[in-house]
Amino acid sequence: MLDGIISGLVSGSTYAILAVCVVVLYRLVGVLNFGQAALGALGAYVCYALVGAEVSLALAVFCGLAVASVTAGFSGWVLARWLGEPSAIVRSVGTVVLLILLLTAGFRLFGDSPRAMPSLVPEAAFDLGGVRVSLSTVIALLVTIAIAGALSLLLRYTQLGIRLEAMSERPLTVQLLGVNSRQLAVAVWAATGLLSTLAMLLIAPTRNPTFESMSFLVVPALVAGLLGAFSNVWIAVASGLAIGAVEGAGARIEGLADYRGAIPFAIIIVALIWLRRREVWDAAR
């Protein structure tokens, strides 16, 4: 059981980082990005395609991160430019469009031919109280916590964070105050593209996922974000790790193993019924 939980933490870290991206983007730009994981998948696949073409790993990773950031930033610009005013729902349908486009492009560019997906972390493992823990699990956890910590500090204590927060609440007002909200939106998008790629590079070596399965890792991430009501970064991180751990543990339980992919949905239904047991109304007035 414990083995399973530990092995699930790598996936959990990926969900957690993606969830942080989703939450931050939703809080700052007001877009729930269904294409978040697909952006990461694009970056990761560019990276592995370059590795396959004998480019050094470091350079390939750099290019992957760059491509994902630029694509994400461009998507952010397009959404801010043309869907800046409409409701969050409309903008989110916009990201469904983004996901479909990214999947089509991904299938086109990368097909399903296998790629070596070298790990960024040296392969090592050690025993901890009878459980084998791999170095990549530890690194993945550390990266996750570092990202979440840095972002929450940035949001709470810096001028930029306060501006960003204000932007999501009153984009027009902030624009009138002379803050270029579109530029900021693009920056936030680009940053989440970069982080999503990082998340994918963590999970890819153990799972060697296809472009499609990578893109749908956004589902556990969205579930994790939803548990934190798309506002609390730390709840999102904890939920992401927990979903990974439960999936890992579920793999060891006879009868449940086959259906553990459905765990996030079960969690979200139970959690929502509990969290929303009291009536809360939509935006006032």
């Binding site: 969205l222 798309f230 086959d258 992919g261 459905a262 979200i268 809360v280 939509d282």
Partner: peptide, 28 residues
Amino acid sequence: IATTRVRGVELAVVTLGFATALDLVLRQ
């Protein structure tokens, strides 16, 4: 009924969760 108190984009996430979960169960 389970999502009575959920709305907007959050509800979209629930429906996507249902879609992927059912897809997985059917694949079994």
